[in-house]
């Protein structure tokens, strides 16, 4: 019998430290993300959740004074030292908490990344736009007004537009940062449905301020507290019997 070799993780974070102008906000954290799982990252405000995501696609570099050390390996390649940052960002998509519609039409918003990657064929772009808008559960609402400026959509629609946009370059990992803070519960549920479907094709890292959202969606959950990982585990197990008292306090609402 051949020995079963554990597949190497899609993303491997080792001793990741991040500081802003000397103030350390991530204190050397290590974790792994597997192919096609949903990993939820929970924790109170200021625990470093957003900062962690920004390290993964290196948008952290846009913050003046940010210094990162440690290692993030994506399919074996070191992210922190890669020179092809824009290619990396096409592999690791990001959805921000507040939707930012680029100042262009719905169509152009979704076609933006493919065009940047060199896709100009109209038919190919049409297909990408339709696929992404369908995946983001927005197609039926905007199919007749793709020429409308993206900023004219409602808040929930704009958030789905940013998801569609993040899907347009077919990322391997989709990172979502508290996507539901600006939208209503019904839309949140629709997007959660979208994410469940996407799990079959990509890995999702979901930073959320809603513990129940993590519980509904995630295969595994990671609890971040003041820049350290307190606990990572299979979601149901963690919610039912947290190992660390801090996790228990946070999940039960006593702190955080």
């Amino acid at each position: 019998m051949t020995p079963v070799v554990a597949p190497s993780p899609l993303l491997e974070v080792r001793d990741l430290r991040l500081s802003y102008r000397g103030r350390e906000v991530l204190h050397g954290i290590s974790f792994e993300v597997a192919e096609r799982e949903i990993l939820a990252v929970i924790g109170p405000a200021q625990s470093g959740k957003t900062s962690l995501l920004r390290c993964l696609n290196r948008t952290v570099e846009m913050i003046p004074g940010a210094a990162v050390s440690g290692s993030i390996r994506f399919r074996g390649e070191e992210i922190l030292r890669t020179r092809r940052v824009h290619e990396l960002r096409r592999r690791i998509g990001m959805v921000a908490p507040l939707p930012v519609g680029l100042p262009m039409s719905v169509y152009d918003n979704v076609a933006f990344a493919p065009r940047c990657a060199g896709v100009y064929d109209r038919a190919a772009l049409d297909a990408i736009v339709e696929r992404c808008l369908r995946q983001a559960a927005l197609w039926d609402e905007v199919r007749d007004r793709l020429d409308l400026p993206g900023t004219r959509l409602s808040g929930g629609q704009q958030q789905r537009l940013t998801i569609a946009r993040a899907l347009s370059h077919e990322p391997d990992i989709l990172c979502l940062d508290e996507f539901s803070i600006a939208i209503d519960p019904v839309t949140t549920m629709r997007i959660e449905e979208v994410l469940r479907k996407l799990r079959s094709t990509m890995t999702i890292i979901l930073v959320t301020n809603l513990n129940q959202q993590a519980r509904r969606l995630a295969d595994r959950t990671m609890f971040l507290w003041k820049g350290d990982i307190v606990e990572t585990g299979e979601t149901t197990a963690m919610f039912e019997s947290p190992r660390d008292p801090r996790t228990a306090d946070f999940l039960s609402g006593r702190v955080g």
């Binding site: 948008t59 824009h86 960002r89 096409r90 990001m94 921000a96 680029l102 100042p103 990344a113 940047c116």
Partner: peptide, 27 residues
Amino acid sequence: VPDSYREAALALGATRWQVTWRVLLPA
């Protein structure tokens, strides 16, 4: 032009020049 446009475009894998030509100048 809001920084959020620059960030959103860069996060989508655009190069600095692409951000400049396709987002900043039109905006």
